[in-house]
């Protein structure tokens, strides 16, 4: 199988920047577990696909150019791309382009060697055209990895035995889950992004501003010159939601809402008997109508963008 990876997954001695100038020239000191597993399985690595800065570039723009990973699979440059789709862009664009994005359950796939962005949501997924290819890839990359502290100790088999709608009532009756999911997501993502990007200091690796006269100037100028506009905004937002004045009403509140969301989905799954024989679930992935299939349009409810095809 011919596969590519987003440039946020490391291959020893190769440049890995996650699309950011802050990691300019960074040579990976080791390889990601998923890469080593693919190579061991005899897959052919066809290089990196470029990515938006940490996957967040143009997060707030209406203009949403098609991602390079989508183009790579759509145009047949490779059969699968390993990606980290935190913000849901790849899941959405995959659906819009007749492709499949498999977002594994957190802990299924090792994140060792993945540039951390939003730690509690980072997860290596598979973008592909053919579901069989995706499942084969998922079989190879999933499994416990002692090098990743959030890796599940046992991972079930990943063959898909059945699928069910996660919210079967989404059209007939309104979902009882109504929290402001997009806001909750953004608050948690910003907080973790601010923490994860604090490591970029211009000292230990990546980009350093020239001619800075003090340590403090190295930090500030390297970061200000190295991060793009969206990354800066997300880091600033993260500092705000974690600050003393806003921690309780924003960050802590969002973490409580996250538990409500998880409990809601767990209860939904319990209600669906078909799941006893299913490893996967199909759920709405965006507030847009799916493409028409043989003239019939499939409609999904609007607010459940944080879940998609999960295996």
């Amino acid at each position: 199988m011919r596969f590519q990876m987003q440039n946020c997954l490391m291959v020893k001695d190769q440049i890995c920047t996650a699309g950011s100038k802050i990691l300019e020239g960074f040579q990976a000191p080791f390889s990601a577990t998923v890469y080593e597993k693919c190579v061991a399985a005899g897959f052919d690595f066809a290089g990196f696909v470029p990515m938006d800065e940490f996957g967040i570039d143009r997060l707030w723009d209406a203009d949403d150019p098609i991602d390079a990973a989508i183009i790579a699979v759509r145009e047949g440059q490779c059969e699968a791309v390993l990606c980290n789709d935190i913000f849901g862009k790849l899941r959405r664009q995959a659906a819009q382009n007749g492709l499949i994005y498999i977002h594994p359950t957190y802990g299924t796939v090792s994140r060792y060697g993945l540039i951390p962005t939003v730690s509690s949501m980072d997860q290596v997924g598979v973008l592909c055209r053919d579901l069989k290819v995706g499942i084969t890839m998922l079989d190879v990359i999933s499994g416990h990895d002692p090098k990743d502290g959030t890796s599940l100790s046992s991972v079930r088999g990943t063959s898909v035995r059945g699928t069910v709608p996660l919210t079967p009532q989404c059209q007939s009756e309104p979902s009882p889950l109504t929290p402001p999911l997009a806001q909750t997501f953004l608050i948690l993502a910003a907080a973790e992004f601010a923490g994860n990007t604090s490591r970029y200091d211009g000292i230990t690796f990546g980009y350093r501003a020239q001619n800075a006269s003090s340590l403090e100037e190295i930090y500030i100028r390297s970061r200000s010159e190295g991060f793009g506009r969206e990354a800066k905004l997300l880091a600033l937002l993260g500092c705000k939601v974690l600050s003393q004045a806003h921690y309780d009403s924003l960050y802590d509140k969002a973490m409580r809402i996250r538990r409500l969301v998880r409990d809601h989905y767990a209860a939904q799954l319990d209600k669906v008997p078909a799941l006893e024989v299913a490893d996967g679930a199909i759920a709405p992935l965006g507030g847009f109508a799916a493409l028409a299939i043989q003239g019939k349009q499939l409609l999904f409810s609007g607010n459940e963008r944080i879940m998609s095809y999960e295996v």
Binding site: Y106, G107, S120, T150, L152, P179, P180, Q183, T184, I187, S249, L250, D252, K253, A254, M255, R256, I257, R258, R259, L260, R262
Partner: peptide, 16 residues
Amino acid sequence: LAEVDTDGIAPLVSPL
């Protein structure tokens, strides 16, 4: 966010 009742709900740090 303030409109969501989270009384008695503990924060969820990790999904696992």
